Amino acid sequence: MTDNDLRSDALPTTVRGFLAASTVHDADRASSFLVEDIVVVDQAETFRGRGEVYAFLRDAGAEFEYTTEQIGARRVDDDHWVVTLRLEGTFPGGVAELDYRFTLRGDLVSELVIANHEA
């Protein structure tokens, strides 16, 4: 197995915990994995600080039904990880593959960039 094809259990606990919580729309739990000055960029929209990011986590995709499957993961270095998720559901287009680019600071996420998957 290469760094470009990591299993979920090879990801840092923080990344696994955040993804598990956000997949079930648990904004309270997902927020527990974030630093206070977290920055999240989702499709070019930026959210800063736990308050804004909490609202984003609570509301993102709430109007749609969808499933999430991890289809890839890689370690860039000790503080940077990329997880590719495939979403299928009732949103426009019905299918999306997104890269979640995590930056860690200690045991917490300090930045998350969500963008279309780069093949």
Results as ranks from 00 to 15, higher is better:
83 V>R: 00
9 D>S: 12
27 A>N: 07
105 R>D: 11
108 L>D: 06
66 Y>H: 08
116 N>G: 15
82 V>A: 06
58 R>D: 11
83 V>A: 02
9 D>A: 10
99 D>Y: 07
108 L>Q: 13
4 N>A: 15
14 T>K: 01
16 R>S: 10
13 T>N: 10
117 H>G: 05
47 F>W: 08
27 A>T: 06
50 R>I: 12
97 E>C: 12
32 S>R: 04
33 F>K: 02
14 T>F: 00
9 D>P: 07
60 A>Y: 03
101 R>C: 15
83 V>I: 06
2 T>I: 11
78 D>K: 11
80 H>Y: 06
52 E>Y: 05
87 L>C: 09
5 D>I: 10
45 E>C: 13
68 T>Y: 03
34 L>A: 03
8 S>I: 12
42 D>V: 03
64 F>Q: 06
2 T>C: 10
83 V>D: 04
46 T>S: 14
115 A>T: 13
6 L>F: 01
114 I>P: 02
34 L>T: 00
43 Q>D: 15
63 E>C: 05
61 G>A: 08
36 E>M: 09
30 A>L: 03
98 L>V: 12
28 D>M: 02
118 E>G: 15
16 R>H: 06
62 A>I: 11
7 R>D: 15
45 E>F: 11
58 R>I: 02
16 R>W: 03
97 E>D: 14
95 V>S: 06
44 A>I: 07
116 N>M: 13
71 I>H: 03
1 M>Y: 11
84 T>W: 00
5 D>T: 12
16 R>M: 08
57 L>D: 03
56 F>N: 04
68 T>C: 10
88 E>V: 14
